[in-house]
Design a protein around this nucleic acid. Structure first.
Lengths: 176, 176
DNA sequence: GTAAATTTGTTTCAAACGTAACCATCGAAA
DNA sequence: TTTCGATGGTTACGTTTGAAACAAATTTAC
């Protein structure tokens, strides 16, 4: 590789981003059929499902989401009747957030799907002898982005099962 | 870990996304001071810098970007005088895109920055004995997202050098 | 040779986004 | 106790986004 050229296919940040995006889209495909959550909504949902009751700030810190995203996701989940707010006894700025019964039910349905999805991801990694990080990334790229994607310009990406929309996790900027 | 709980901190897609986002932001910090490219613009720019002349479709396929993103990025780079369009001789639908002299100059300045950034990323990985993929991801998370980020809710993310904005690579949906 | 289908790239439109400004509340300092 | 800075969370505003519709050119099918 010439020294004055940056080979994108092997540039770690680039690979990470393409890979993360492809994984999100793929997972969305396994899940979006059930309910149409946005990425922030899914994240808040999954965080509350895991930890039970939390404040909006805590969710944002844990999942690296901007507080406005959390705020809007909370509103959306609330309208969906999956989330409930409870005012704090001693500090009226704080709201304790938790999943409703319906939310917990949905969460219980989601968990096995997510685990199965991850298992499949890891299976692909294993099969490609993904022991080192770079090898692992390469294997995932090959599996998710199509074989030629990272090597030849103009290559189609048909192997990605077409996913019209619906993002899922995607981090964003944490509130400073 | 209970079987009916999904532990987000160790959920591969979640980790990948948070990690990719953190890496993007960090890299943006090293680069955004020079010029204020958006993510799609940076991608088109880097792709053309690497491959020379390409069509918009080829760029989209290679970098997994939606064609509208490519279209808008091309317009922006053209206005910046970093990109030039040349009509195809035999097919008038096609435009061949290439960096201008100014674009190439900017590219030459960018390449060493990107390489240095990646080197630093890999150095962190090595130091954390990132031989296996999961270990590598963990190391990157520890380095980029703050030590407690992935383990305890409510943990601050101060270790991310604050990056007001400017995305960089981020994949998107390839045109079908 | 012409109609239909495809391809290339742009535009439109509604949704999602981040920044900044904002309100309300709290804690600390004087 | 009053004031002032910090904190929890929402709202407003301009920008970015993807899906879908589109125009223009080309290829395919008949």
């Amino acid at each position: 590789m010439a020294d004055d050229i940056l080979a994108l296919e092997s540039f770690l940040p680039y690979r990470l981003n393409r890979l993360a995006d492809a994984v999100s889209r793929e997972f969305a495909g396994t899940y979006r059929d059930r309910h149409g959550l946005t990425r922030p909504e899914w994240r808040v949902f999954a965080t509350l499902g895991q930890f039970g009751t939390m404040t909006a700030t805590a969710i944002g810190a844990h999942s690296a989401m901007h507080k406005t995203k959390v705020s809007r996701a909370v509103v959306a989940l609330e309208q969906r009747k999956w989330l409930m707010r409870t005012p704090d006894a001693s500090d009226r700025r704080i709201e304790h957030l938790a999943l409703t019964k319906a939310g917990v039910t949905a969460y219980r349905e989601m968990v096995p799907l997510a685990k199965a999805f991850e298992k499949e991801l890891l299976r692909r990694l294993k099969r490609a002898q993904a022991t080192a990080l770079m090898e692992g990334l390469t294997a995932l790229e090959a599996g998710l982005l199509g074989s030629g994607a990272a090597s030849a310009p103009g290559t189609a990406h048909q192997s990605i099962t077409t996913l019209p929309e619906l993002p899922l996790f995607m981090a964003s900027k944490p509130s400073r």
